[in-house]
Nucleic acid binder design. Structure first.
Lengths: 202, 202
DNA sequence: ATAAAAAGTGAATTACAGTTCATAAAATTG
DNA sequence: CAATTTTATGAACTGTAATTCACTTTTTAT
């Protein structure tokens, strides 16, 4: 008769899958993609290398999921801000600030997600992720322009520029970690830059 | 008695070195770092793989030189613009426009230099190169602020944001190449974005 | 011309990580 | 509890590309 997974087994498998993802995320956060070999993921997740391949077809597929789930989460946060209350300017500022603050909390992870070398499949996923981010910003831009708050501009390009701007400004200090105080000023400057870029005032 | 290289030999060696660099640059331009194996470089330059190692201690060292010499060249172009005539705003616009135009001419090369995955040594060199770019922009920013043309702002961070902004906006279309007409509009939008970001007007 | 030194060759070596697979362990069914 | 199916193991395999090195060719010096 057909083999049927018990609920307990079902759970354990799902749990293993999550543990693998968590292990991969942890390794990326600590040492970047470079440190995240399949063997290392297996070690931390408490499974064997072979077992990983029962849950993910390839290393690349695993890391694509790590990346895109993390980005999806960040996007929900940004979306909530962007689709919230207040002027377009205020919402733009809040979104950029929130992103920057969170990125500085987990600097390595942010770097890996935003800029670190990875193989082509992951790279392709990253491009889509960046687009996801810029899509969120496009929404405020459109609203701001429609409401006369922002001057006319290409929302596609402005959104890309915003993502690029705070990305670059955030990735740089990621290497030589600065103190909290400077973080405050950094975030402020980035937010101001983006506001000026979009509104043409300041 | 001590062996001494004749002038002719000297020249041939220097020539080989240049050919190796040129071959490496060509391969990167055509297919990115991925296509630029030592064997391929050897093939194009007309030397053997072993010979490459008489000129460069490692593949990474070779590509670090390819990258940094190309960037140094771009920086001299930008510097000439930035240290030239006109208002700070005009020079900033001209610099961004020039960079963007050149990047769109050799899209693959620009992508490779700006964003393509590479090994850690090359990556480290890239970080320095980006800093070189932003240093040029810092100069106009300082002048613009000193002359009251730009509002007060962190030149470090604004410069990083500028580099990040046009980088991101340029890398994106690099994949699905667009037509010349759209290039014009793209450049325009990027330049406008950067001007607004820095001047707070527009 | 011949010996010594340097430069060039390219197949063999090395290094490394992702992936597979024969085998073992565990889970499910009757 | 035997039979069967699924899941787990981890050493071996594989593919790739950088690097080396024993050997050849070329260049320089006497």
């Amino acid at each position: 008769m057909a083999y049927q997974r018990s609920a307990l087994m079902q759970e354990r498998l799902a749990d293993n899958r999550q543990r693998i993802l968590a292990a991969a995320r942890q390794l990326v956060a600590e040492g970047g993609f470079r440190a995240a070999s399949v063997t290392a993921v297996a070690g931390i997740s408490g499974l064997s290398t072979g077992a990983i391949y029962r849950y993910f077809p390839s290393k690349a597929a695993l890391f694509v999921e790590v990346l895109s789930s993390a980005v999806a989460y960040e996007c929900t946060i940004l979306s909530a801000i962007v689709d919230g209350e207040g002027s377009a300017t205020a919402r733009l500022r809040a979104a950029v600030e929130s992103f920057a603050r969170r990125a500085l909390q987990g600097p390595h992870l942010a770097y890996a997600f935003i800029a670190e070398p990875a193989d082509p499949e992951v790279e392709a996923a990253r491009i889509l992720c960046r687009r996801d981010f810029s899509d969120v910003f496009k929404r405020v831009l459109r609203q701001g322009i429609a409401g006369g708050e922002f001057p006319k501009q290409s929302v596609d390009i402005s959104a890309a520029c915003i993502v690029g701007a705070f990305t670059e400004a955030l990735v740089r200090p990621t290497e030589h970690r600065a103190k909290r105080k400077q973080d405050q000023a950094l975030i402020r400057s980035i937010v101001d830059f983006c506001e000026r870029a979009v509104t043409g005032t300041g």
